[in-house]
Each structure stands twice: as structure tokens, then as C-alpha cells.
Design a protein around this nucleic acid. Structure first.
Lengths: 247, 247
DNA sequence: CTAACATTTTTCCAACTGGTCAAAATTTCA
DNA sequence: TGAAATTTTGACCAGTTGGAAAAATGTTAG
């Protein structure tokens, strides 16, 4: 991760109005006294706060979320929360920073030496599992994207781009070897992101359309089946028992 | 459109705190004096406001957007704006209501009597054009979905669901006739929504990953080409000059 | 036990927010 | 033209929001 700590050179969206004293005091009697070891209780509380913040930010976005809400979900008073994270933005930054790392893990796993189709298939499956198991993280990310990624421009322009470039190269080499349809590797990756994250980000819509019938959790399995077919064969009708490529 | 006017039985999310006088006065000396014809200037100003609101809501979501912001973008004072739309929610509701209608138009056009593949192909193309030409509308919608669609639950559970049910039936009949791969029609539609809207909602990400190189607007054409291939054939490598189904 | 430190609570603030209201400015139309 | 209606403005409000300060309450090592 490049992502330097961006101390004062932040994007500073709209909320850069008042002068914050905290900038000056840095490490007074307060706790995030940089470089101090970080006690067990601090770690715990911070985790509680981050968890609560994820809950709130993922629904309302940065601007729409309030410290009071987060504090309430975290079960503590606002000033107490501010004791651990002196700035609202700090919380958000921490969340996003940690997120991108795990978010891209599935793509990192895509292995040049594997079989193209099983690699792609498991990438899709892993991404779909993330949408199912970490929908809030997905929404947090989506929210940030919708707003033009003001707080993570650098991350996506450096870390994300580099990773995708690297994997696009692998996809291209597979295409050169005739083991994968020749097509645009970037858009291929986009389509995997889009189709899988859709199940987290647009969950309400998916549920509403599928109806409140028995589709409790089955929708993820259905989605997995469908996506596998889509990516492997597209929608072209084909005779029964045709062999699937690379399986 | 079912979507009844929801007079007082609104979701009333968090902002149902203070008692608003406007509820009582209804049509005083003020302008949206229900049932009056709506002067030309009123129509104009309302359009200006809605346009500005789209700009702001689509980025920050309902909670994150402020009337002041909207008023500034619209080039008028806040009280003046409030004169045309006495409630923030009113503006949002109007936007979303109008949106869903046009948003689903492409799907409505899918014609049972057409060829399955050209119908699907043009549906994808139309959706992609909408992502290109109306990205703010797409983001407004996405924002609402991310928040759990609190203000349009009914619309998506009735209007949207009905339309999708209807079209799913058409897809199924095509499958029965062996003119389309047998698969889940709902997830098929989801995947079209996801892949196309991705280019509006995650625009920053797409741009960042593609690099600021020459990909000015070409990305939409590239996406169209890629998606056509994906949906028609999937990623399976295939011999040159194979005939495309239904073309 | 107690001084030094960590944590929490109470109180407070200034800017922002959605919205009101009366008066002023402008437009419309007989 | 002038009175009625419409539109715009400026002042104002109460509730919310991000954050500060300091006092009060733990905790813990010596």
C-alpha cells in the first residue's frame, strides 16, 4: 500500500470551515498520543467504534452520518467517542483504508499459473461471498464511489490501478494463449465487480424484485449459478451435455 | 404507476421531529396552491430547482445534501427555493418519482415478439446509454438503494417488481422455445442493471483504473463491445468467424 | 495507599440545518 | 394605470452537528 498518511493535505471536502484546535495540540493529555503502544482497552474501544461507524457510514455516507449516531450505536457518549477518534474524518479514513485491502484480496489471489476458467470462476465466487458476508463494507465503498471518492482518490489511482493493471496483463496472456475469449480485460474485471457487488449494494431492490417469498438466502446461490453460466457461456442456447470449457 | 400520493402516512425517517406548520396551512397565500394551474414561471423555477437538486442529491444522498447547497446551485436564496418546494423531502420525492419512470423505460421496450438476442442486446445498449447520458440520475437511484430505499419502497415493490415479473415471463418463454439459454431470468436482468449502471455509479473508479490516457469517452464503446460479447457468448474462447446467435 | 495516567461525563459552543414569516419587490391583468 | 396576485428577500428560530474544555472517575505501578 502506498497511501501515505496524508497529514494536512487532505481533500477537505466542504467541512474545511472551522479551524480545529486539535491540529495544533496533536498529542496533548489525550489518548491517541502517537507512538504510545496502544493499550488493550483502547484497541477494543476503537474496534467497537469502527464497527458502529461502518454501520452508519455504509448507509448514510460520510456527510449523512453523524457522530451522535455512531456514538449511540457504539454505546458510548459522543465526547467519549471523540476521545478515541478526535475527528469524524479520522474514523472514516480508517475504515476505508482497512477496507480496500481486504476488498481487493480476492483479486490478488487470481493466479497466473492456474486454469483461466477456474481462476475466474473462483474469483467470482469469492467476490459474491464478500457481497453476502460483508454487505456493509461493500456499501461503504459504493457510497464513497458515488461521491466521487474524495477521500480515497489516491488509493484507487495507485493501489487499485496497479493491481488491476497487473491482473489485466495475466488475463491478456491467457487470451494470447487462446485459453480465454479475446476481449477487454479491464471491462471483464469491471463486470465481475458490478455483478457481484450488486447483491450487496442493491440488496433491497434484489429482495423486492424477487419477492418476499422463500428466497431467504437462496438468492446468493442462484446468483452464483447464474453468474457462472453467464461468464462461462453467455446466454447463447446450447445443446444439453455440452462440455464446459476448462472444467 | 401505482405509487399513491402518500399524504401524511409517509415513512418520515428521522426528520419527523418538529411539527411543521405547512401541513396545516396547505394552501395559504403561498404558491403550490394545489389545483391552481401552475404558472409558466413556476414551472421554470421548479425545473431549475429539480435540476440543482439532482446535482446535489446524486452525490451526497438525501441526508448529506442541504437545502442551502441546492439553492446555491440553483442560483436562488434558500427561502425562495422553499417557496416552491416547502419541504426538502418534497424535492427528493419528485425527483425519484419522475426518475423511476424513465429509468425503466428501456426495460419496458423489451418486446416479446422480437428476436431474443437483439432484444437483449438493445436493452443493454439502451441502459448503457442511460448510464452515459444520465449518470446523475443513476447515482441518485443508487444512493437511494444504498440507504435501503426508505423513500421508495413502495415503488420498487409494486411498479418495479411487476414490470420485472412481466419481463421475466417473456425471458422464460424464450428459454422454453430454446431461443435463449435456460437460466434465471431475474438474475439475468440484475446482471444487466449491474454491469451497465456500474459505468455511471462507479465512474471515478472506472476512470481511475483505465488511467487518464486517451480513454476520454471511448470507455462506453469499449464497454458496449465487451458486454455484448459477454452476454452473447461468455468468456469461452471460440474459433474465428463463428456465427453469432440470432444476429 | 497514592501519584500518575487513562477514561468518562458534564457542560458548553459556534456553525449549520430545515424551515418560518412579514415585508418588499415584481409581475399580471382588468 | 393601479390593485391584486405572485415572487423574492432579509431577519429570525429552534434543533442539530462537530468539536472543546475541564472536571470527575477509574486504573495501575511503585
Amino acid at each position: 500500500m502506498v497511501v501515505k498518511k496524508l497529514k494536512g493535505a487532505d481533500p477537505l471536502p466542504v467541512t474545511a470551515r472551522r479551524q480545529h484546535k486539535a491540529d495544533a495540540k496533536a498529542a496533548a493529555t489525550h489518548p491517541p498520543a502517537r507512538q504510545r503502544p496502544l493499550t488493550r482497552i483502547q484497541k477494543e474501544k476503537q474496534d467497537i467504534i469502527l464497527e458502529a461507524a461502518l454501520e452508519v457510514f455504509s448507509v448514510h455516507g460520510f456527510r449523512g452520518a453523524t457522530i451522535d449516531q455512531i456514538a449511540e450505536v457504539a454505546g458510548m457518549s459522543k465526547p467519549n467517542l471523540l476521545y478515541y477518534f478526535p475527528r469524524k474524518e479520522e474514523i472514516h479514513r480508517r475504515l476505508i483504508g482497512a477496507l480496500l485491502d481486504t476488498w481487493l484480496a480476492p483479486l490478488r489471489e487470481m493466479d497466473e499459473d492456474g486454469d483461466p476458467f477456474s481462476e475466474i470462476r473462483s474469483y467470482i465466487r469469492r467476490k459474491l461471498e464478500m457481497a453476502r458476508d460483508f454487505p456493509r463494507e461493500s456499501r461503504l465503498f459504493a457510497n464513497e464511489m458515488l461521491q466521487g471518492a474524495p477521500r480515497i482518490h489516491e488509493m484507487i489511482e495507485v493501489d487499485l490501478k496497479n493491481l488491476v493493471d497487473e491482473k489485466a496483463k495475466i488475463l491478456l496472456s491467457w487470451m494470447d494463449q487462446g485459453r480465454l475469449a479475446r476481449t477487454d480485460p479491464y471491462h471483464l474485471i469491471f463486470s465481475i465487480w458490478a455483478t457481484t457487488q450488486h447483491y450487496a449494494d442493491f440488496d433491497v431492490q434484489v429482495r423486492a424484485v424477487l419477492g418476499k417469498g422463500r428466497n431467504g438466502e437462496g438468492r446468493f446461490e442462484d446468483a452464483a449459478r447464474y453468474l457462472e453460466q453467464l461468464f462461462m457461456h453467455g446466454l447463447a442456447p446450447r445443446p444439453r451435455n455440452e462440455t464446459k470449457p476448462g472444467n
